[in-house]
Design a protein around this nucleic acid. Sequence first.
DNA 1: ACACTCCTGC
Length: 719
Amino acid sequence: MAATLSRAVDVHCTLQPTSDSNRPFFLTSPLIRLPNRRRFFTISCSSSSSSRSPPKPPPDYEDIHPQNPSLSDQLKSLSTTLLNQTPQQAQLLTKPKSTWVNPTRPKPSVLNLQRQKKSQQHLYNPQVRDLKHFARKLDECENSEAAFMAAIEEMPHPPSRENSLLVLNSLRQWQKTLLFFNWIKTQKLFPMETIFYNVAMKSLRFGRQFQLTEDLAFDMIDNGIELDNITYSTIITCAKRCSLFDKAVEWFERMYKTGLMPDEVTYSGVIDVYAQLGKVEEVMSLYERGRASGWAPDHIAIAVLGKMFGEAGDYDGIRYVLDEMKSLGMQPNLVVYNTLLEALGKAGKPGLARSLFLEMIELGVTPNEKTLTALVKIYGKARWGRDALDLWERMRSNGWKMDYILCNTLLSMCADLGLEEDAERLFDDMKGSMTFKPNSWSYTAMLNTYGSLGNVDKAMKLFDEMSETGVEVNVMAVTCLIQCLGRAKRIDDLVRVFEFAMERGVQPDDRMCGSLMSIISYFEEGKDVDKVIALLQQANPELVSFIKLLEEEKTSFETIKEEFRGIMRATEVEARRPFCNCLIDICRDGNLHERAHELLYMGTVYGLYPGLHTKTPDEWRLNLRSLSVGAANTAFEEWMRTVTKVIEQKEELPKLFTASTGAGTHKLAQGLASAFESQVKRLAAPFRQSEEKAGVFLATREDIIAWAQLKAPSLAITS
DNA sequence: ACACTCCTGC
């Protein structure tokens, strides 16, 4: 759906160049030279069948460091030489200490933490029951210290260490946890150990109270209470849940520097933090380090890696994860399958996703709603409507579980593929079902189906139905309808729908503004444009002022630059490129070609068009796939201007010039190839549609030079 | 959730 409204946003794996001073501790250490990613894959592929510990270093590394120690040895020297720690601390590196090791089990190996199985006995233990009941009472009492102190008098059993822990761990409200924690602290019946802090932090994390969690940690440090792996992983995951990724990293580094070796849970948690920050290099280093020190990654770590590579659309990475599982002898579980399916979808491998799905069924793993949602998305994106609908049938006959997200994903896929009848059938099914009546997402998907097919009357009728049945009228649904009405040039209806939405309290967002702007760019000047501009004025007055400024001939480039920056700063990241595209279109429609070039320039400077232009000695490429028609034309002119300059200065040119517009499987992108073709024709430029690949245009150096000498001067003047 | 920490979809 998002892709329909603002042109498909490509996933760009942007690995930020990190300056050395900002690098994580484990990457800056001079003793450790971790393989870079490319090399990393080479290693893992060649040794995929053997055990991976210690990993074989890349060949050139051996050349440079003839006596290279294994990574785990390196880790050891890191701990003893760099960290200045006591022998006990050094011990921690090889024998991580868990506060809870079951003595009846064998001693844990390096990172293999034994976890305590939970027993069910408490259900029959009256004392436990009393204390849990008491905890419930505390939870329910008024949130004031006085009320709490009164309630605490009722504690049914003495506040011994064990009883206190039980109560502390049974409280649900973080406020109560904190009050109870402080109370047992002041009772001084026993010393406060690490576990009391850990349990309290768990509750604070549930309440998303990072600051208070951190305060507790500082309290531990002040009072000389040891922070263990559980403490650190709780702090880290709390930061993560509060989206404070930097804090998560900061605490991980702090742990590392104290010489504490991360255990399996902390590893997975931190790897996830780095993955969410898009720091692929850090993730791989940490993963490799863990592996080198004897860590056997579990399903969770594998899922985290799979998700990360999926987000980056990195198929090599996904392959690597699959190989890793094979070499670990690991059978994927449901979550891992789900993650990998989705990752394969994002990497554009629908066929492989389907085989993986079949494998999973073969092995008797029952798919859940998330599995099916992922598959429907993949099939939809691949335009395999039939497969997705077959899957739907299969779900119904097998009685696989359904939920809202799955239904709505199916509906949305129907919208993207223009499967009106199937969408209607599914929508009617939902209306007839007891559990999943259409909600605002369902209505939005349905509106999008009608809208993209230009079925304006059905869309309007459905919108009326939506507002009458009490389903929340959301900004997305309104945007779909507005887009549809705009394209049908039914501006008075559009205005009515907009005003109605405002009365219903809908908050216009950037995507809606983008829609309004794109409608503005469809029209010639006149009454209709003024009406849409008036709506944009209500939704985002700054944008209207900026458009006026663009149209003002005397506005200086400096001013445009300044204002453009302000606009983009205030715009959600995913809406920035569509905004810039629309603004360029508006300029071109208003014959403000130089302004369009200025906007494109600034868009490029702000990174809105990554990979627009790439060069190799043999080939120069222009990738127009995320651009609007106006922006694409502007970019092409700019490209040809550059080429002309290069020719004038008699510099090297490549043999081949390539411009890709995309084949247009996506409905909004469809026009780009033909628009490009007519632009090329208008300029008489020597680009020809490639015969092997749709949506790719080629020109040779000789043709370009001949053309540039004849025609190019006109580029600067007329366009 | 009788002592704890990590992962999946509109």
